[in-house]
Design a protein around this nucleic acid. Structure first.
Lengths: 227, 227
DNA sequence: TTCATACTTCGATGATAGTCGAAGCATCGA
DNA sequence: TCGATGCTTCGACTATCATCGAAGTATGAA
């Protein structure tokens, strides 16, 4: 009857508070069990199970069985991008669940956005990569230049290996706290992994924050200074 | 209790089929009366009125009284961008309200996305502007170069006047049918207005399609050839 | 004033869907 | 084989909310 895609179904999936909380928890990038997600959303296990079935049917999350645990994760980074842009929209309009709490500054500084680095540090990293001619952005897609590939190799990142993955190497993702873009895609994931492997930072256990050590922060800022 | 913005409220607003249909109708860019929107959504006037009150409270639409009519429109182009990205996501996941109908090819070729040109022609236009160095894209923002400003003046577009508006001059908007970006912002709006003022094309009455005349299509493709 | 149009508000109804207790299935360890 | 853990399914309850009829308000025309 009507033309075009049906946004109501997705809206309804995201529109339930319990489901939205579970999705927000999964934006942390870790795969979580149904029990953990139930805790995050403040509902019982049965209810969570029903919600997860709907989210899976809608293609927003996917599960992986491992022993008697079932780990749920966002099915795509595309889902992560959509959720982040929704959060940005909500933040601009004042749809906040609470006034900014003590954790908020840490989140604005550096946090994980599904699987890559977001917040001030994430935006700064992409800015620097663009300024140095290592990444070229065109629309929502981004490409790594030859110079950029050399630099990534210098950081110990196997770009060819990343290319073999099905997902795009580079994407931009709109940052809800900075209102500017940071780097997503498999390269964004690899860069965050590198930062953590180096011991420069670690993921917070109970939030999306990325906590830098003092030495790690110095090293990061030396690598990606203000343009 | 939870950190971050509340995406559930927006999701719930968009998640009702009647409201989603009204929003989709408003993506046509025209301001519509409550009666027209009720017709578009297939509901009675009372129900539409209740929905519109909710959408307005949520900041998604705004109304303008004019005599005994009340015209409703999307409050921002930001709302349009969000809806278009939701449509893109929905289209990729197969959330279609119907199988592609006869209008579909026309929509994919050229349609209005709130107030600017989308579809194949919209994507092609931005591609060409980038290729000619008239627009530079960085992240989700785009800037008009000096050369681009000269060219826009040649097309009869008063860039300085556009700059005085509160909204950004250039933005990119992800196209749901092409899965690439086209040009939004006040410049995008001005370019579409120019195309229509020239008599190259007109808006369809009953859909988002932009219908080019044969001569208009030739003129447009001459202006923005394939890169 | 009177009538008509456009829309909102009120009130009642009905259906959808979120919720949880209880029971069922699957996996693991002993 | 037994019990424990993790999760799903079933069934029933409940609350929310979309829906529409009817009445009320506002603007315009005659």
């Amino acid at each position: 009857m009507k033309e075009g895609p049906d946004i109501a179904q997705i809206g309804a999936l995201i529109g339930d508070p319990a489901r939205a909380n579970m999705l927000a928890a999964l934006m942390g990038g870790r795969a979580l069990t149904a029990t953990e997600l139930a805790g995050a959303a403040g509902i019982t296990l049965q209810t969570a199970s029903s919600h997860l079935a709907k989210l899976e049917a809608g293609g927003l999350v996917s599960q992986r069985k491992q022993g008697r645990h079932r780990y749920f994760a966002l099915s795509d980074d595309e889902v992560g991008l959509l959720l982040e842009s929704l959060m940005g929209f909500a933040a601009n309009r004042g749809f906040l669940r609470t006034r900014p709490g003590p954790k908020d500054p840490a989140l604005r500084k550096a946090r994980v956005c599904y699987d890559h680095l977001a917040g001030d540090f994430g935006v700064r990293m992409l800015d620097r990569l663009i300024a140095e001619g290592h990444v070229v952005v065109g629309g929502d897609e981004a490409t790594l230049t030859a110079a950029g590939e050399t630099r990534m190799a210098g950081l110990g990142i196997d770009v060819d290996g990343l290319r073999r993955q099905r997902r795009p190497l580079c994407r931009t993702c709109l940052d809800w706290s900075e209102r500017r873009s940071h780097l997503a895609g498999s390269l964004g994931e690899a860069l965050l992994a590198r930062v953590i492997d180096q011991g420069w930072a670690r993921r917070s256990e109970d939030s999306r924050a990325i906590l830098f050590t003092p030495a790690g922060e110095r090293a990061f800022l030396e690598l990606f200074p203000l343009s």
